[in-house]
Simulated scan of single mutants.
Amino acid sequence: MRAAGPGETRLLPWAGEDGKPCYLVTDGDGPLSRAADAVEAVQLSMAVGLLRHADDLLGYERASAVQLRFLLARMSESLRDVHRVAESRGARLVDADGSVSGDK
Rank of each mutant, 00 (worst) to 15 (best):
L79Q: 07
R92D: 08
D97N: 12
R52M: 05
S78W: 00
S88D: 11
Q67G: 03
L79A: 11
A86C: 01
R84E: 06
L51E: 07
L72E: 10
A91T: 06
R80F: 06
L51N: 10
D81H: 09
M75H: 05
R69D: 09
S101I: 15
V94R: 11
D95E: 14
E61K: 07
E87T: 05
Q67M: 04
R84M: 09
A54Q: 07
H53K: 04
A41E: 11
L44P: 14
E77F: 02
S45A: 15
D95A: 15
Y60R: 11
S88N: 07
E87V: 06
R84A: 12
A91I: 00
R62C: 04
G59L: 10
V94H: 02
D81C: 07
L57W: 00
H53Q: 08
R80M: 10
G98L: 12
D81I: 05
A63E: 03
R92P: 00
L58Q: 11
H83V: 00
D97W: 03
H83N: 09
A63G: 00
G90P: 02
Q43T: 08
R89L: 15
E40Q: 13
R92S: 02
A65D: 12
A73M: 03
S88Q: 03
G102K: 06
V48Q: 12
Q67A: 06
S99Q: 10
R84H: 01
R84T: 08
R74E: 01
L50S: 13
R80W: 05
A96D: 13
L44K: 10
L51S: 12
V85Y: 08
E77Q: 10
L71P: 03
A86D: 03
S76R: 15
S101D: 14
E40R: 14
L50W: 04
R52C: 01
R80E: 13
D97H: 10
R62G: 08
R62H: 05
G49I: 03
L93W: 08
G49V: 01
M46A: 11
L72R: 11
L44M: 13
L44G: 01
L68M: 03
D95L: 14
L51V: 01
R84I: 06
R62T: 08
L44N: 09
M46G: 05
A91G: 15
L57G: 03
V100Y: 15
R80H: 07
V82C: 09
V66L: 07
D56Q: 14
G90F: 08
L71A: 02
E40K: 15
D56R: 09
A47M: 14
G90K: 14
L93M: 13
